[in-house]
Structure formats: C-alpha cells, structure tokens
C-alpha cells in the first residue's frame, strides 16, 4: 500500500514537472541578454533542469523530498515559505515572492521578472542584487560569481580593513628585509657605510644613484 502511495506521489510530481516544473522562457531571455551562457541552475538544483534521475532532479527524490516538492507546488500565491528539492535558493525565493501564479504569468514576459522580484534581495551577500544577477546571467546563490566590476567594488568596500592590514604587514616586512640585507652585507664584509646605523631604503637609493657612475664591470661580456 505504502509503495502504491509513493508511486502515485512520484507520478504526480513527474507529471507536474512536465507541466510546470521548468520554465525555459526565463533561461532563453537571459541567454539573449548576456554573452554568458546559462543553464537551468540559474533557478534549479541541477543544471539540466528538474527532469531526470540525478541529484536535484525529480527521479532522485526520496519520499520525504517528494512530499516537500508537492508542498512547494501548492505555493500559488506570494508569501508562502518554499523549500523545494528541485529548486535552488533563488528559485525558492522567487516562488515565495511571486507565487507560482505570478511566475507562470511572467513566462510570457521574462524581462519583467527583475522588476517584479525587486532589487532588495541579495541571497549570496556578494553585494549584487539577485535580480541584477538574473539580468547578468550570473549565479544569485554564489558569492564568487557575479559581474566582475560590481564584485570588485563590493569586495573592496567590504574588505578595506583587511587590505589596510596586509599593506601595513607588507611594508613592515620590506622594512625588515631592508635591514636584514644591510646586516647581511656587513656580515659578509661589504660596504661598511651601508651597514652603519640605519639602513633604510632611502639610504640605499642615494648610494645606488652614486654607484651608477661606476665604470663597467668585468662581468659584462
């Protein structure tokens, strides 16, 4: 009996998928919008879409996941929490915001989806709104994927303190190398003047400019 119920659930889910599980109009619109190639992973758990037996596709779902899928499919109106096993976080959020009815209506004009979805949500926290990522054909669920220029600007702002620290650390390291070289030169009996007192880069530079007037070395051939 349990098997029959599960089989019935699977058939319902599979039929549902073929009816309204995947909406390729959105993918086609994004493909035409950007030089980037996109696939179903824009909104789905699997790049090849919901149909199939691979992870994230209907054929691979456990009974519990099938139940979750059926529940997600009842979200016709906006505002219902969705956790579909065949959608990624962006797909879930889209259904939550627009409802399945809204999404089905937008199939005819997929370019309106960003406005309908809004530009407030940023699921991956990369500083680029999900709607903008949809327009750009980048992954709204991956903080390492987005328009490079926007990512750079956001990450520079977000990490400025790390950058200041690494700059200070590098300068201190170079200052140390500066002194180490001066000490080493003294140790191997080099120019004594260089090793006396401070051996800052400025001193080296001044001495260097003096040395540039030296005659050609015998090392040159």
């Amino acid at each position: 009996m349990r098997r029959m119920v599960l089989a019935a659930m699977w058939v319902t889910a599979a039929l549902g998928a073929s009816r309204a599980g995947a909406y390729p109009e959105f993918q086609a619109w994004v493909d035409g919008q950007t030089p980037r190639n996109v696939n179903c992973a824009l909104c789905h758990a699997h790049g090849d879409g919901p149909d199939g037996v691979k992870p994230g596709q209907i054929g691979s779902l456990s009974p519990e996941q099938l139940a979750a899928l059926n529940e997600a499919r009842q979200a016709f109106e906006p505002g219902q929490q969705v956790d579909s096993p065949i959608l990624n976080e962006f797909g879930d959020r889209m259904v939550e915001k627009l409802g399945r009815t809204g999404i089905i209506q937008l199939r005819q004009r997929p370019g309106d989806l960003p406005q309908a979805y809004g530009f407030e949500s940023d699921l991956d926290g990369d500083g680029i709104p999900d709607a903008r990522e949809y327009i750009d054909g980048t992954l709204a669920t991956n903080a390492h994927h987005g328009d490079p220029w926007l990512l750079l600007r956001h990450n520079l702002k977000a990490n400025w303190w790390h950058l200041v620290l690494i700059a200070i650390a590098t300068l201190l390291g170079l200052y140390g190398i500066n002194n180490l070289l001066a000490w080493f030169e003294q140790a191997i009996g080099g120019d004594e003047e260089a090793a006396e007192g401070e051996a800052g880069i400025m001193k080296f530079e001044i001495r260097n400019s003096k040395l540039e007037t030296n005659s050609n070395s015998t090392i040159l051939k």
Partner: peptide, 30 residues
C-alpha cells in the same frame, strides 16, 4: 632590494585581486 620591493608590490596587488575579484566571475557558471 629593488627585487624585494617589486615582490612586495606584486604581492599586494595579487592579494587585492585574489580577495576582491574571484577568477570564476569572468566565466559562465555552467
């Protein structure tokens, strides 16, 4: 010494780029 300073500058640039500009962002995610 000049070599070391060049290495320092290149390291800083590399660090900024690596921290702020993921390499994969230039490609299609599929």
């Amino acid at each position: 010494l000049k070599d070391a300073w060049l290495w320092g500058v290149v390291f800083l640039v590399l660090f900024v780029v690596a921290l702020c500009l993921p390499f994969e962002a230039f490609f299609s995610y599929p």
